[in-house]
Simulated scan of single mutants.
Amino acid sequence: MSVTQQEIDSLFERSGTGPLSGIVVADFGRVLAAPYCTMLLADMGATVLKVESLEGDETRSWMPPVFEGESTYYMSINRNKHSIALDFRNPDDLEIARKIAAKSDVFVENFKPHGLARFGLDYASVQALNPTVIYASVTGFGTTGGADLPGYDLLVQGAAGLMSLTGAPETVPFRAGVAVFDVFTGLHTCIAILAALQHRTNTGEGQLVELNLMSTALSAMVNQTGAYAIAGVTPRRLGNEHPSIYPYSPFPTSDGDIILAIGNDHQFKVFAETIGAPELLDDARFATNRDRSQHRDALRPILEQILQTKTTAEWFELFRAKSLPCAPINDVAQGIQFAESIGLEPIVTVGQGEKTQPGVRNPTLFSKTPVTYDLVPPTLNQSGDAIRAWAQQ
């Protein structure tokens, strides 16, 4: 199919001048960690060329929910990208893949460890074609002893210990309600790519960046893994409570629950006065955060009795007026509505002209180079002809 230069140029046109304008990203990622990373790069102005199999990214088939017949899972992490479908077993398609790699600033992949080597798309091969490339590789359990383990977030939540911390003491371990380590790894990958791009600016050198979900998980569990690494303490499941702070959990009200996060002694003083229980401040069991943590079984019933005298909304307004950390427990719809009520504008319009859809705002605000939402998530191979033509120029 004949492609005009204008169609090729359209791959690089954006409505704004994001901080990554001019950077071309070859996105060989699938599912969540890598595509989430590349969407963040795309939001910041990078041109992202999503290289898919002929069947497409697995998340295209992960439904329900759906929006206009498409998977909302896929649509949540693939805006601002251009899609090309290639069969690496086809020599012509593989040559296009290599040319895309050769012309890109950044190459992102999350295949099984060493899975791209047989196609000549591993780091050594791509670096030979493109010496200054930033090559970001994401795996589940690293490339050494865990290379054979499938890299699914749920497996990492179990293996890293997060599930052992999630749920009440009397329940079985639970997974988090979101693939947290896929998302965290995507964020770390984005950070690493930005750092590597800065290094390239300073030195002209490209490099290999490697991340894995397991290492990200252990880092992301911060104080919990730190407790073991530093003091040999194995944390246990506490439900919604915190091992080191009290009160720091949901408490029942007359019509639901309110979350309290009283993180220091001054906050507890204001809290005790606000709930009409200043006598708590004279009780030695509750004098300091350490005391309250140690005597939480004595403090909880006192607080429950008081907090059940008003509604969640009433307490929230009282505590908010005193700048005390608190929040209701919302469902996802209520969470978005709450963000709207405080002016965060969480829903944006993705796309331009006749083809638009709702999306969730990128959380980063730039004063001079704002993120943009120019392109709805691409249909499979939507820009295939234009990308092929560009790769062969």
Rank of each mutant, 00 (worst) to 15 (best):
R237P: 00
T171Y: 05
A220L: 02
G384K: 07
D43S: 03
P346T: 06
R89T: 07
A333T: 09
G167P: 05
P325R: 05
F141R: 03
T364R: 08
L375R: 14
M163I: 04
N264V: 10
T189K: 01
A33P: 07
N264K: 13
P64K: 06
S323A: 15
H242A: 13
L40V: 10
S61R: 12
E273S: 11
G120E: 02
T189V: 01
S249Y: 04
S104G: 05
D105Y: 02
Q5I: 12
P64V: 09
G353D: 03
K112G: 09
G177C: 03
A179C: 08
V270W: 12
F286M: 05
I23Y: 06
L116S: 06
Q308T: 11
G206F: 00
S125K: 06
V233S: 02
V133T: 06
D182R: 09
P328R: 10
V138P: 00
V376G: 05
T372L: 07
V156I: 14
D255E: 12
D257C: 11
T364L: 14
T139G: 01
P131H: 04
P35N: 06
L380E: 01
D43T: 10
E7F: 05
S2I: 11
E70W: 08
N362W: 13
L165N: 10
D374I: 12
V106I: 14
E55P: 00
R296K: 15
I230T: 12
D43H: 12
E340N: 01
F268E: 07
G186W: 08
D257S: 15
H266N: 15
I230D: 07
L324Q: 06
E273L: 13
E52D: 15
C37Q: 03
T17L: 02
L307T: 08
L213Q: 06
R388G: 11
A128H: 10
P378Q: 14
A261M: 09
L208I: 04
K99A: 06
T312Q: 08
G204M: 07
A117M: 10
G161Q: 04
T185A: 10
L194H: 01
L344K: 11
P91A: 11
A227G: 15
A192N: 08
H188C: 04
Y123P: 00
G263A: 12
G18D: 06
V209I: 15
P169E: 08
R14Y: 13
Q157F: 02
I275V: 14
W62T: 02
V126I: 12
C37M: 15
A160F: 05
S76K: 00
